[in-house]
């Protein structure tokens, strides 16, 4: 079957999709967006978390056909999404100005140094919340959405909001640090 939907503000079409395929598979294997991760494919780890019409969901449990006409934001689009939110435009998609701005930034081809990041992405790097990094994309999408809803979370709030995202490397302490840091920076910026 064919599926048309929007990913990170850009219209996408996937063809010859097998009806049993998940949104996760379509993103990773058909659209060249492997940022959403395939750790369990049973909704028990959160590494594939994306926003579907704004709501964080496990993309492994969304049938590809269910996203027809819907909007998806993945970790690859998180920086842009956060940027638009902070500008208050609310809309997705890249304006001409933004496109020029993007190309004007020098980035390091190797490490992506210089890449514009969402505050929560930068906080994960700065706090040492990334080790193997396989849980990171899902955690970032979930944490970013929580901070959008709840800019001043308690520790218990953070833990509850991230309780669907498993991490095997860090013991979560530096993930807590990162989210606290992102919240604090977000507070300063306002």
């Amino acid at each position: 079957m064919r599926v048309n939907f929007t990913v990170n503000g850009r219209p996408q079409e996937a063809d010859d999709v097998w009806e049993g395929e998940s949104l996760l598979y379509v993103l990773r294997e058909r659209l060249g967006l492997p940022g959403s991760k395939n750790a369990c494919e049973q909704g028990e780890c959160g590494s594939c978390t994306v926003r579907l019409d704004g709501v964080p969901v496990c993309s492994c449990l969304v049938a590809a056909g269910q996203v027809e006409g819907r909007e998806v934001v993945t970790v690859e689009g998180l920086a842009e999404y956060a940027q638009q939110r902070s500008r208050g435009t609310g809309a997705c998609g890249t304006s001409l100005d933004e496109a020029r701005w993007w190309s004007a930034q020098g980035t390091d081809s190797g490490t992506g140094e210089g890449t514009e990041l969402a505050p929560v992405q930068q906080a994960f790097i700065d706090a040492g919340a990334v080790q193997c990094g396989f849980c990171t994309p899902g955690l970032l999408v979930a944490a970013d959405e929580m901070l959008e809803r709840n800019p001043n979370p308690t520790d218990a709030d953070i833990r509850e909001a991230l309780s669907g995202n498993l991490c095997r490397c860090t013991g979560y302490e530096k993930i807590m640090d990162a989210v606290r840091l992102a919240a604090a920076r977000q507070g300063e910026a306002v």
């Binding site: 492997p34 490490t111 140094e113 040492g128 994309p137």
Partner: peptide, 23 residues
């Protein structure tokens, strides 16, 4: 010193290529 990971940015943007990402 607590320098930051050289692969950190790639890992937070989803660009870091894991073995299951190969295509």
């Amino acid at each position: 010193e607590s320098t930051l990971r050289p692969d950190g940015t790639l890992k937070v943007t989803g660009e870091f290529a894991y073995s299951s990402d190969m295509w």
